[in-house]
Amino acid sequence: MGEGQIDEALRTELQRQGVWVTSMQELYNWGRKNSIWPLQFGLACCAIEMIATAASRYDIARFGGEIFRPSPRQADLMIVAGTVTKKMAPQIVRLYNQMADPKYVISMGACAISGGPFKQGYNVLKGIDRYIPVDVYIPGCPPRPEALLHAFMELQRKIDEQKLTGADKAAHLDPEEPSEFPVPAFGKHDLEPPANPDVFQPPELKRV
């Protein structure tokens, strides 16, 4: 049993007696995962599905994520919803840098993951993970609102598993971990650099 863990049998027994026992870590994660405020920020087609997710039928408020903030200073989650163009990429990195820690990124849709159908475009960034770290990727073109809700729940599960202390504690609690990343510059032919090697380490392509 690790630090901050409670014996499940003891906890159930105590709950029967009307005593609710929790740990700091559980309370912290519980509060955090149920009040994720996304940045109100849409790029392309996926943004419309993001709005549909926030509208009455799919109702992201059930998961505590309906408070879309127009300012990055007040947001916890950046949903990169749509094609990231090279002209837009520096702005996205800048917005990410302006968000306060802890911050999370959902890469919504094929375009934000890899460029998607527009991968061969000269102005299309081949995935936002070239410049900023991504927590959840959700494929689709565009992903249905249910898929975005799934991504949201995945993120909640990820937050729930965060450790407050120890060697494997959450990245935002480690002062050594960077929370801001360099903003790429507009070059003569391409963005400079075309990817941030600290963030983007693509696996070696295995071919037959």
């Binding site: 002209k87 000269y122 081949k126 507009f186 003569k188 032919h189 693509p202």
Partner: peptide
Amino acid sequence: ILMWDEFEDHPMRKDYVQPDDFEWEP
């Protein structure tokens, strides 16, 4: 209007060569 001001090429020309910045799937 569409590309950034520092950009030098004219990408819709037929002889434009775009930066080779991604893996081509076989």
